[in-house]
Design a binder for these strands. Structure first.
Lengths: 205, 205
DNA sequence: GTCTATATTTTGATAGAC
DNA sequence: GTCTATCAAAATATAGAC
């Protein structure tokens, strides 16, 4: 009789390496964007980052929520800083919005997880006390750009909230359909058309 | 020494009534739309519907997923039927789209859970094999309306997918901002402006 | 800083009495 | 068709050894 040979198939024995906080954040961002927050367990994150157990994650973050919070803060901060930069380098509202659109489309191609997490994940479902997008520094800067555009006569005189709604309605829908494959090409391919449609919607004729 | 008095506060002893499948669906829809699928437990549904235990739910639905599936089918079917009706009653693409917009805005005010569930909940997160919105009968009918509008010269000659994207980008963003309070008034208040912006975006000038 | 082991909690789900 | 009781599984989190 043959001896039973127990072959332990070890899926991937990741050499227990030392892990950094940023690695955890990157892995979590990718997973949250792909599968959603609730479908992502700490086990998934631990696997993605190459740990043997989830324990190692707790040295950086006390809870799974805390990971999502940090992620959101980082992304929003970075976005807000980019907007500052854009405002510094451009004077006209049209130029500033144009560059913001440029940034969003570039990110959609190069770092889709960021756009997914920034624009299309309902963070309030798992971050109950997170401020709405509309209460963030980044959003307020965009709103000010629009208000300025109205004052300077570049943008039609409508409620600035509605101008935001129409403009980013088009931009965001385009990005979303690129991300979920409803638009088959890269975001870049649609950028100039989307810009024309969105700007045409709010520009003074 | 005073005697410890255990007062059992019974939050609400719901008189065990008999429950229908439709009551379960209605309660689930409301909860899913409010708190999200993952934040809604069968316990929540059982409470909302007035049962003492979750067991009663299992006579209608084998799994929690099945509730969400049925809900989605029902809503999509009903929406598809409404579109059929609209196409029957109107000839021009502009009229048909106008009535679809009318329906969406009415529903946002009268049954926000339906719009929430139809347009803004990522069902693929908990219904892994659910078809994308873009593969539903309802969506295909809308797409055909747009293609027809292009053929008849009502709508600019662009990719029909892009026309859909711009048009419903504006419409859906408006509805979303009404639902989350970023636009403070009723959907109805914004309907005619949103229609003008959205239609103006795709109409032949 | 990573591991083993385990505690804790929650939730989805089932069996069977009434 | 609703209830009691219970199960099984999964996931978050902790304690302590190495």
């Amino acid at each position: 009789m043959e001896q039973e040979l127990e072959i332990e198939i070890q899926p991937e024995t990741p050499p227990s390496k030392t892990v950094t906080q940023d690695e955890v954040l990157q892995a979590a961002l990718k997973l949250f964007a792909q599968k959603g927050y609730f479908n992502t367990s700490l086990t998934d994150i631990k696997d993605a980052v190459g740990l043997k157990t989830t324990s190692g994650i707790y040295q950086f973050f006390k809870t799974k929520q805390a990971i999502a919070e940090t992620l959101r803060e980082n992304i929003l901060d970075s976005f807000s800083i980019s907007i500052d930069d854009i405002r510094r380098r451009n004077r006209k509202a049209s130029e500033q919005l144009r560059e913001i659109v440029d940034l969003l489309f570039k990110l959609t191609d190069d770092a889709p997880e960021i756009i997914q997490y920034l624009l299309f994940i309902k963070t309030e479902d798992f971050l109950p006390e997170s401020t709405s997008l509309m209460d963030t520094a980044a959003y307020n800067k965009i709103k000010r750009i629009i208000q300025n555009g109205i004052k300077e006569g570049e943008i039609r005189s409508v409620d600035s909230q509605l101008a935001y709604c129409y403009f980013f309605g088009i931009i965001n829908q385009t990005l979303m359909m690129v991300l979920n494959g409803s638009l088959p090409k890269t975001a870049d391919s649609y950028q100039s058309q989307a810009w024309l449609a969105a700007w045409g919607c709010i520009a003074k004729k």
